[in-house]
C-alpha cells in the first residue's frame, strides 16, 4: 500500500516538474514562460519531497521531517524570485506577445 502511494507521488511530482520545463520551453514570451516554473515546479518538488518524508519515516525507525524545510523554503522563495525576474523584465522593457492585453491606464 505504502509503495503504491510513494510511486504515485514520485511520478506525479516528476510529471509536474516536466510540465514546468515544457512551459519554459514552448511558451512564446518571457512573461508567459514565468508561469510554468513558478507553479508546476513547486508542486512537483513538493510531491517528491512528501514521498521522501514518507519513505524515510517508514523505512527507518525515526520520523524524518527535515525535507519539509526544502518545501517550505521553495514555497516562500519561488514567488519572490518570480516577482523580481518579472520586475527586471519590465524594467528593461522586454517585448511581449502581440496579443497581450496591457493594463487600462499605463
Amino acid at each position: 500500500m505504502l509503495e503504491w502511494i510513494l510511486s504515485a507521488l514520485i511520478v506525479i511530482g516528476a510529471f509536474f516538474t516536466l510540465v514546468g520545463s515544457i512551459g519554459l520551453y514552448k511558451l512564446p514570451d518571457f512573461f508567459m514562460r514565468l508561469h510554468g516554473p513558478t507553479k508546476a515546479t513547486t508542486l512537483g518538488v513538493g510531491a517528491i519531497l512528501i514521498a521522501s518524508v514518507l519513505y524515510f519515516s517508514f523505512t527507518t525507525s525515526d520520523i524524518s521531517l527535515h525535507e519539509v524545510l526544502i518545501t517550505l523554503f521553495l514555497f516562500i522563495t519561488a514567488p519572490i524570485s518570480a516577482h523580481l525576474m518579472a520586475k527586471a523584465a519590465l524594467h528593461i522593457r522586454l517585448k511581449r506577445v502581440g496579443r497581450t492585453r496591457e493594463p487600462a491606464d499605463n
Partner: peptide, 29 residues
C-alpha cells in the same frame, strides 16, 4: 533569447536539480 529568459532557465535548472537529488536520495536510500 533575452537575459531574463536565461535567468529564469537557470532558476528552473536549480529546481530540477533539487528534484533529481531527492530522487537519488530515495534511490540509494
Amino acid at each position: 533569447p533575452d537575459v531574463p529568459d536565461r535567468i529564469l532557465a537557470l532558476d528552473t535548472l536549480y529546481i530540477n536539480a533539487i528534484a533529481l537529488l531527492i530522487l537519488a536520495g530515495l534511490h540509494f536510500g
